[in-house]
């Protein structure tokens, strides 16, 4: 199992994070943007877990794992609020396209 190393796990996490960031920047559908944000949060969770597992778990330090639980809870709350806002937008416009969000300029 030489593939399962700290570096590879971090690189996987960073790739996922970049995919998420790319999605947030380029996607027009706000629902997909929210999904991309979830990918970013989960990529960070993966990085946390791999740091914790490879570097500190043997010494009995588990802080990183607890932090992941907090991040999951926060991401869920954020997704709930985000979806609620999208629902209100959909009711007003029948559409959740980010291109239409240009009421304010200047």
């Amino acid at each position: 199992m030489t593939f399962f190393t700290l570096n590879n796990c971090i690189i996987l996490g960073l790739i996922l994070f970049s995919i998420g960031a790319y999605g947030v920047i380029t996607r027009r559908n706000l629902l997909v943007v929210l999904m991309s944000l979830e990918i970013m949060f989960n990529a960070v969770n993966l990085i946390f877990l791999s740091f914790n597992y490879f570097l500190y778990y043997q010494e009995g330090r588990e802080l990183g794992q607890y932090f992941v639980l907090l991040v999951i809870a926060v991401a869920a709350a954020e997704a709930a609020v985000g979806l609620a806002i999208l629902v209100t937008i959909y009711r007003n416009r029948r559409n959740v396209d980010s291109d239409l969000l240009k009421e304010m300029k200047g």
Partner: peptide, 14 residues
């Protein structure tokens, strides 16, 4: 107000 909330949420979460 919708637009303000969704912009704040997405950029804030980013």
């Amino acid at each position: 107000s919708n637009e303000s909330a969704v912009k704040y949420l997405i950029l804030g979460a980013f």
